[in-house]
Design a protein around this nucleic acid. Structure first.
Lengths: 195, 195
DNA sequence: AGAAGTACCGGAAGGGCTTCCGCTTAATTT
DNA sequence: AAATTAAGCGGAAGCCCTTCCGGTACTTCT
């Protein structure tokens, strides 16, 4: 059922693409700001070819971490099914913060999507994963009911903008708690409290 | 008491600096991503001169909006003194969001500071302004007691990363509410509630 | 006024991202 | 097997930010 309109992709194009991904994986692992030119050179192709396959630096990165991103997205669904809503949310946030620190594919997805680039292919599943977690919390009454998944995603993006340093982990935890508390349903104030 | 070590600044340097600032003000107002080269050209100086006066693009922007930034910082102190803590905080956040949208000097300050650039000259007053607001809230019991001003600043930075669009204002408000709820002191859960 | 000293200027140059387009060559047709 | 066609290639070129340094021209001293 694959819509192969006219011709199949050329084999050299295929192998180039694969080689670029392999090289880029190593390159970014070594230094996260390796230049496109360098990657092209190492892969033995011209910049033009690199850009034909990945129209943007961010596109390349997103493609690279595609699998890891998918794993995290899947995790959201698993957690939502297996844990109490609040725990699920917290666990997932922690996972996101962790990955965001190590690799930084997430950060790129958010940034690209947030800044109008990138089609929804990568962004939307992320949003839906959050929505699942939020829905579970809304159903159980632990979370507010009118939460917007994109809002939450935006808040999460703060987690990987924490400047690196020895207290980074502590800050991440603190911020995570603040975010979570913001999402939690507020108990009604006791009657007769000062207005 | 000014430490004028050897000589006074040259008059051409002074006038160049002033002209650059004037030109840059207009240029950024017209298009926030005007290039340094363009600004230099419009100011009738070489890029080298531009960079001698403002070692970085962000430095130029920060200097440009210095006054506005100071105004917002002052406002924090005023509000803290005049309004109930929660109202003061909300009002101030709204102001920050507003300015951040219009100009974007703030965004640059945060970004620069967050990414290790920029000395504290611009960053610290911002943090202290927040601290004042937080302290007032802690004293009145409306806010949590152990809040970190830098954490809150980081959260605020989300406000000016909202993608522009017709619903931007709505989203800003929603996010602002989430952030505020995260900062508010949580009433103790009623005794006997499910753990 | 003239000379000396140096703060400051200007723009070439290096490195980055991305676009463009003439040429190559794999895939397909005859 | 030769011819045809267009997918794909490569790298020059445009624009950006920033650095560097030889030359200029304010200031100051005599």
């Amino acid at each position: 059922m694959t819509a192969s309109s006219s011709r199949a992709r050329r084999t050299d194009a295929l192998s180039n693409r694969a080689r670029i991904l392999a090289v880029a994986g190593d390159a970014f692992a070594a230094s996260s700001n390796t230049s496109m030119t360098t990657i092209a050179k190492q892969a033995g192709v011209g910049v033009g070819t690199l850009y034909r396959h990945f129209p943007t630096r961010e596109a390349l990165i997103v493609e690279l971490y595609h699998h890891e991103i998918q794993k995290v997205i899947d995790l959201a669904h698993t957690l939502a099914a297996e844990l109490p809503p609040l725990d699920a949310l917290r666990r997932w946030f922690e996972e996101v913060a962790h990955y965001g620190k190590l690799k930084y594919g997430f950060s790129e997805v958010i940034h690209a999507a947030t800044n109008g680039g990138l089609d929804d292919k990568n962004y939307e599943p992320f949003v839906r994963a959050i929505a699942v977690l939020l829905d579970a919390g809304a159903a159980s009454g632990d979370l507010k009911r009118d939460l917007d998944a994109e809002d939450v995603l935006l808040q999460l993006s703060v987690l990987w903008r924490i400047p690196p340093g020895e207290d980074a982990a502590t800050r991440a935890t603190r911020l995570l708690n603040l975010i979570l508390d913001g999402l939690r349903a507020r108990p009604a104030p006791p009657p007769g409290s000062p207005g």
